[in-house]
Amino acid sequence: MAGLAAALLTGCSLQIEEAMCGDGEYPVLAVGSTGGSCVPNVEEPPAGYARYPEGKVPEHVGDEWDTYWSTRTLDGRGNVVAAPDAG
């Protein structure tokens, strides 16, 4: 509690980042759209979903890769393309 009070008094802001998925899960991208889901670590992505390319996996809502994938998706061959539903 003292740490929170000190942060408030010194003008520091606390930023809480929301994880893309819960413990034991990983994010997957809907092929052909900007949608996504979370899959248990022990399972493969369901039909119509794919793993994000290595190094381009969003970890928190609003992070660099979450923003990147808001306008891009994967086509059926795994190529990064402009998302048809990105507005």
Rank of each mutant, 00 (worst) to 15 (best):
His60Lys: 14
Trp65Gly: 01
Ala83Cys: 08
Val42Cys: 00
Tyr68Gln: 05
Gly24His: 09
Ala2Thr: 12
Gly32Met: 07
Glu18Leu: 12
Thr67Pro: 00
Arg51Phe: 01
Val28Cys: 08
Ala50Arg: 13
Pro46Thr: 04
Ser37Ala: 15
Gly62Tyr: 02
Gly76Tyr: 02
Ala5Gln: 13
Val28Arg: 04
Ser13Gln: 15
Gly36Leu: 06
Gly36Cys: 09
Ala2Arg: 13
Gly48Tyr: 11
Trp69Leu: 12
Cys12Asp: 10
Thr34Cys: 05
Glu18Lys: 12
Thr10Val: 13
Met1Asp: 09
Tyr49Arg: 03
Pro84Trp: 08
Asp75Leu: 08
Glu43Phe: 14
Glu54Ile: 13
Thr10Lys: 10
Leu8Ser: 08
Pro40Ser: 11
Ser33Pro: 00
Tyr49Gly: 02
Arg51Gln: 11
His60Met: 04
Ala2Ile: 13
Val61Lys: 15
Met1Phe: 07
Tyr26Gln: 06
Thr67Met: 14
Glu17Phe: 12
Cys12Ser: 09
Glu25Phe: 15
Val61Gly: 01
Glu44Arg: 13
Asp75Ala: 05
Gly24Phe: 11
Gly62Ser: 06
Val28Leu: 07
Ala82Trp: 07
Gly35Asp: 10
Pro53Ser: 07
Val31Asn: 02
Asp63Leu: 06
Tyr49Pro: 00
Gly48Trp: 11
Leu8Lys: 14
Tyr52Gly: 05
Met20Pro: 03
His60Gln: 02
Gly78Met: 10
Gly22Phe: 10
Ala82Val: 11
Lys56Cys: 00
Pro27Gln: 05
Ile16Pro: 00
Ala47His: 03
Thr34Phe: 02
Leu74Pro: 04
Thr71Cys: 11
Leu74Ile: 08
Glu44Asp: 15
Tyr68Asn: 11
Glu25Val: 02
Gly48Ala: 10
Tyr68His: 10
Leu9Arg: 15
Gly62Met: 02
Ala86Arg: 01
Thr34Ser: 03
Trp65Ile: 06
Thr34Gly: 08
Gly11Asn: 08
Pro46Gln: 11
Asp63Phe: 12
Pro53Phe: 05
Gly22Ser: 11
Tyr49Cys: 03
Gly3Pro: 01
Arg77Trp: 01
Leu14Met: 11
Glu54Ala: 15
Ala86Asp: 00
Asp85Met: 08
Glu18Val: 12
Tyr68Ser: 01
Pro53Arg: 03
Pro46Asn: 07
Gly22Lys: 12
Cys21Pro: 11
Val39Trp: 04
Ser33Gly: 11
Glu17Val: 05
